[in-house]
Amino acid sequence: MTTTTNAPAGLKVSEQKALAALAEHSGATASEIASYAGIGGSTAGKALNALESHNLAYRERGAMTGNRKEADLWYHRPVETTPEHISDEPEAEAAPAATEAEVEAPAETAPEAPAEAAETPAAKAAPTKRLARGGLRQMVYDYLAAHPAEEVGPSGLGKTLGRSAGAVANALAKLAAHGQAELTSDSPRRYRLKA
């Protein structure tokens, strides 16, 4: 699997800096990215919106707490040469919340690649099997269950599981929302199995 943060031609310097910072600190707020990138807060906000329009970043909208809205969290969307980019991230963004039965179901691989993945040259050559719906969440949960005392972040766990950090970040967030994992640190984001 090859992951690249190569930016398309035409990105401004501030957008390139924001992209580099986001690649290292996926799951950060815009103000944190501004600090990591060494650029102003409003500049970082504009740069992140531009990266989102180039499909190089995506945001998780902050929840409302009373009358206060929490800050949006920004994630790096790496460009990958395996079907993982096709299967994991869009499903993680668009899928409805996992049911209890879905989270508890064993992880399975699809018996054959769907037609749209087979049409992609990279998909033909890639050895990575596409996961069934909810499969990545199950992989993440299984890892947390096997290492209950360990606090993990999306990037490190993504490397361990051979999956993208963005998709793993979504899986961790959904497990936390269902009470199966707990967020132990906001910056950097860290999770562990819910006791």
Rank of each mutant, 00 (worst) to 15 (best):
Leu172Lys: 03
Ala123Met: 07
Lys46Ala: 11
Leu48Ser: 01
Leu144Phe: 06
Leu19Asn: 02
Pro96His: 10
Ala126Cys: 15
Ala173Asp: 08
Tyr191Glu: 02
Ala71Ile: 03
Glu182Trp: 07
Gly158Ala: 07
Gly10Phe: 09
Glu15Leu: 04
Ser155Asp: 12
Gln138Met: 08
Gly162Asn: 09
Gly179Phe: 14
Ile33Pro: 01
Val140His: 05
Val152Ser: 03
Ala123Arg: 01
Asp88Cys: 13
Ala169Gly: 13
Asn55Gln: 15
Val103Arg: 11
Leu157Pro: 06
His178Glu: 14
Glu52Asp: 13
Ala20Thr: 13
Ala165Leu: 09
Ala7Pro: 11
Ala195Ser: 13
Glu32Ser: 05
Glu93Pro: 00
Thr120Ile: 15
Leu48Ile: 01
Ala176Ser: 14
Gln16Asp: 08
Ser31Gln: 12
Arg61Phe: 11
Thr43Asp: 08
Lys69Phe: 02
Glu60Phe: 08
Ala177Gly: 13
Glu15Cys: 03
Gly27Thr: 04
Ala37Arg: 00
Leu19Glu: 00
Ala9Arg: 15
Pro114His: 12
Gly179Leu: 14
Ser187Val: 10
Met64Leu: 15
Thr128Gln: 14
Ala37Lys: 00
Ala101His: 10
Ala28Met: 03
Leu144Ser: 04
Glu100Ile: 12
Glu108Gly: 15
Gly62Trp: 00
Val13Met: 08
Thr99Glu: 12
His76Gln: 07
Ala177Cys: 06
Arg77Val: 06
Ser53His: 09
Ala169Lys: 01
Ala169Leu: 03
Tyr191Asn: 04
Ala107Ile: 10
Ala47Tyr: 00
Thr160Gly: 08
Gln180Cys: 07
Arg163Met: 06
Ala117Leu: 14
Ala115Met: 13
Gly134Trp: 07
Asn6Trp: 09
Ala125Val: 14
Glu70Asp: 15
Glu24Trp: 01
Ala117Asp: 12
Thr128Ile: 14
Thr5Glu: 09
Ala146Thr: 10
Asn49Val: 09
Thr109Ala: 13
Ala28Gln: 01
Ala110Glu: 13
Ala118Pro: 01
Ala123Tyr: 05
Met1Asp: 12
Tyr58Glu: 05
Glu93Asp: 11
Gly27Trp: 00
Glu102Arg: 15
Ser53Cys: 07
Ala171Phe: 01
Thr4Ser: 15
Thr184Gly: 11
Ser14Glu: 10
